[in-house]
Nucleic acid binder design. Structure first.
Lengths: 214, 214, 214, 214
DNA sequence: AATGAATGAGCCTTCATTCAT
DNA sequence: GATGAATGAAGGCTCATTCAT
């Protein structure tokens, strides 16, 4: 099988995965039905079980964390100082979370998983979230080290900084239904995303430095 | 029926509400079944419809925002400077969100609603979340005014500060399933909650003050 | 208990019976719910079982055939020739069946019973329908005797004449939903009822005489 | 799949339709349960919704008016004089209504619909009953024209003749439960059906001719 | 005597899954 | 290999009925 000759089976798998990502991110895992996913993928209802064993299996495969990992790798390669790298990362992460144009539905699925864990959550945590926490932990540690006012920072405190950063970012995704109702006019276009990312970066850098600063 | 002998009907209603709060916060609205709720409440399957008309009706009643509102009112009455009030609020809010001993499952249900909106979300936003945002907005504005370095702060920027604070707090609830997997040993006892709340308050105050540009 | 002091229990019974007649004739026995009947009767849901043992019991009591019997007795007393008495009876019977102003819901309930027999049907047949058939049988026999052209008429043939008369009358009740759809403008006011009754009488007398006439 | 090997799906559909016709004609639409229908059809409870979308859908499909229409067309083609055609039609119609051996339960369902209209009644009236009334109207008009004693017959009077004929025929179906109780020994075999049909035809022709005033 | 509360059997329907082809 | 057909467990809900007072 070359890149030019993808066989029919592969095409169906692919269509199913795309349809599943769309459906899961829109309706949640429970809310999305196998029938609807198959309808969107223009295949028969038995396909999901045929190709992925079960609805759970489909979810597990539908999650690919390539984008998130690529983002981290690119960030490391950027090679700037950690403060700037944090800024960059937050902006990229927010774009991934909010930009409705990109097919980054994985993130939305993950967000759903947090609130509604399925057996797939273990895989998500292992393969995507744990590395992400580690990545941010390293970044924050670098920043803290650069600003160390003599005091040492505990692992717990470091972890909380990571949580603070992630919490701010994820809020815009988790609370999206609420924010839509509170501010119906607000649109998350590129400009707004930049503004939010800038805010979170500034807010977080100040927060991190306070930890050391004392 | 005296004040000492609560109506049987009231008791059943009450047991149903508790069971529902538990179930909804654990399995989500869709995931929780009427049968399971009734089993927990030790009553029959028809009770929910008898007492609340429907599963939706049960959800609507299961949400009462008294605790959250009481918390805000107490905070206003505390009368300290806004920085301290923010610290207090964050600690109380985190206790409410995380302390598994208190029956504050409403907050957990609300968290679920964010990820999986039902018709009840409109009510929740109107009656609980919008006031909460407003309350925090006022608090942040006071802090900003006290620290104004001449510059003005836009409404958008103010709103983002509120989001940053709430995002940090809610992260511990939204991401609970993840955090459990990342740090299996960690328990959210009073001490840990205090530490987290303290961190968020410090982090946020630093962030807010950075906004003023001072 | 005098006619002036009907006790509360009797009043409730009476209200229930009226409500039941209304409901049964409108929604049928299965379609009408005990709750709705009790709501109309402004009493509690347990009343039906309390006063009548069951929904079936309520139906059995709701049926009273006084009007139908009165009609037959009056007809006998009229003392005219049988042809005229048949005319009179058909007109009265049609009025009872169709006039929406009179509370003759029993007839409508009976009509429902025919299509949807409940345990009450035995009682209905025994107490109302069998006597009615007998009454009409006697009337037709008189007519036949008056016109006997020498030939005898079998019991079976006599019975079929009765069926023909009743069939024509009941058609307007049984097929009411259909007729409403076929001729939406038609109203069964007094004039129309008279016309129909006149037609059925003429039609039937001709039919009966043909049987003899040979 | 050859013409000899009917699709399994088709067989199930067919079994469901037969079971539904049987059940609906016996218990009415409300009284018949999906579970019972599926039990009779020896399939699972989900079949009805799978094949027909809903119980309503099943009813709509269970009604096919082919037999009734065929009967009318055959009658027209018979080409005899209208009196004889009426005789023929009544006999065929009665056979359809009463012969328990033929699968003509549609007529019985229709009869049920009259007493307990469902959303399907509109379809029934439009597709089956209205044409039937028209057919009989034409037939009666022909008879009247042949016998016109100079007088004209109004549309209303014509309609009532049709009602008289149909009423007599349908009586044996509508009142079947009653007749069973009144005359337990009577069986509607071919001979009895012929006798009834003959009676109705004679009775009606006499009635019709009376209308012409001759 | 009379009632509001509570019940459980049963309703139609939806769903992920399995099976025969 | 891939699919339309079929499945049965489970869903929320309605209802006549019963129970404790």
């Amino acid at each position: 099988m070359t890149s030019a000759t993808k066989n029919v089976s592969e095409q169906t798998r692919s269509r199913l995965l795309n349809a599943a990502r769309e459906a899961f991110s829109q309706q949640g895992f429970q809310g999305a039905t196998v029938r609807e996913i198959c309808r969107r993928a223009e295949t028969n209802v038995a396909s999901v079980n045929y190709h992925f064993g079960s609805k759970d299996g489909l979810l597990a495969e539908a999650l690919n964390f390539g984008q998130l990992k690529a983002l981290q790798m690119a960030n490391v390669k950027a090679g700037k100082n950690p403060e700037m790298r944090l800024q960059l990362f937050i902006r990229d992460f927010m774009s991934m979370l909010l930009d409705e144009k990109t097919p980054s539905s994985q993130c939305r699925i993950m967000a759903r998983e947090l609130a509604d864990p399925t057996p797939a959550l273990d895989k998500i945590v292992r393969e995507a979230i744990a590395p992400l926490h580690e990545f941010l932990g390293d970044l924050v540690r670098e920043i803290l080290d650069n600003n160390a006012g003599g005091g040492k920072t505990s692992e717990a405190e470091l972890r909380r900084c990571v949580h603070s950063i992630l919490g701010q970012c994820l809020f815009y995704r988790h609370s999206h239904p609420v924010l839509q109702r509170l501010h119906p006019k607000l649109r998350y276009d590129g400009k707004e995303i930049d503004a939010i990312a800038g805010h979170i970066a500034d807010f977080s850098l100040a927060g991190i430095k306070r930890i050391t600063g004392s």
